[in-house]
């Protein structure tokens, strides 16, 4: 029985780039070099490992994003994914997690799936809720935040290292899985992989292809609104004090103000 794996990935601005907000208070992604979100690399890696353990699996990598997002797909294809789906539409600009999860869910259904794998959070938004939202929208079990995952006999199993306890989880396919950065180092693409990626199919979809109305997504369709965005002042020369007996306490005060304590 063929195993269809869909990996959701996000194209994010590089962490060292100059990140800022645009006039409409959406994230300004112009002029910033982007890449496949590091946390999603783990998802691609686990998908590839699951696929390599059997001979009937196919890995499709999916992203919702502007034209540049194709770089994220190409990297995943270079790592070894079989094909890619790119959902791109101007009306998607400014979508919140609700809009994004709706688009992803419809694209996943259109592609056909037995297992959806995502990373634990995105490195630029870090909401970390998309996998749960996908499970809710698709009406399938969520097996999320796994540091170990395996598939066998139509069942996905994994280990979730929560705050209070470590749990072993199990659910029947189809299911939505997310993996953490503890799930195993992602492979580097090889030169061979980069060459092979050029020949792999990339399907383009827009909102019409997914039967989604523009009003349901994008900035206008978002259910949250950013009212203001303020830049934090740059690091100024620091404060240096001499200990007069309460130096430790004053330092603790500073740390508390920075929310470290």
């Amino acid at each position: 029985m063929a195993l269809r794996i869909v990996v959701c990935v996000k194209y994010v601005p590089g962490a060292t780039g100059d990140r800022r907000f645009a006039d409409d208070l959406t994230v300004d992604r112009d002029d910033v070099d982007g890449l496949l979100s590091e946390l999603d690399e783990y998802a691609v890696e686990q998908a590839l490992q699951i696929a390599e353990a059997r001979d009937d699996a196919e890995v499709t990598v999916l992203t919702v994003g502007p034209e540049d997002a194709e770089d994220a797909l190409r990297k995943a294809l270079s790592m070894g994914a079989d094909k890619a789906v790119h959902v791109e539409d101007d009306d998607l600009h400014g979508s919140d997690v609700m809009g994004t999860s709706l688009v992803l869910a419809k694209a996943i259904e259109k592609t056909g799936y037995d297992l959806v794998i995502a990373g634990m959070a995105s490195t630029d938004g870090a909401a970390g809720v998309v996998p749960a939202l996908l499970a809710e929208r698709l009406g399938v079990p969520q097996v999320t935040l796994l540091s170990e995952v395996s598939v066998g006999d139509g069942v996905v199993r994994g280990r979730r290292d929560g705050d209070a306890a470590t749990e072993q989880l199990e659910a029947s396919l189809p299911a939505v899985v997310s993996v953490t950065d503890q799930s195993g180092e992602a492979r580097y693409p090889s030169f061979m992989g980069i060459m092979a990626a050029k020949k792999k199919p990339v399907e383009s979809l827009d909102l019409d292809d997914l039967d989604i109305e523009a009003e349901e997504v994008g900035l206008e369709g978002a259910w949250t609104k950013v009212d203001e965005a303020a830049e934090r002042p740059a690091r100024t020369a620091g404060t240096v004090v001499t200990d007069e007996g309460a130096g430790g306490k004053e330092l603790a005060e500073f740390l508390a103000g920075q929310k470290f304590v």
Binding site: K75, P189, I194
Partner: peptide
């Protein structure tokens, strides 16, 4: 494509 090669080798 050559930037991709370089990126991989550099990483």
């Amino acid at each position: 494509m050559y930037d991709e090669f370089r990126a991989v080798a550099r990483t």
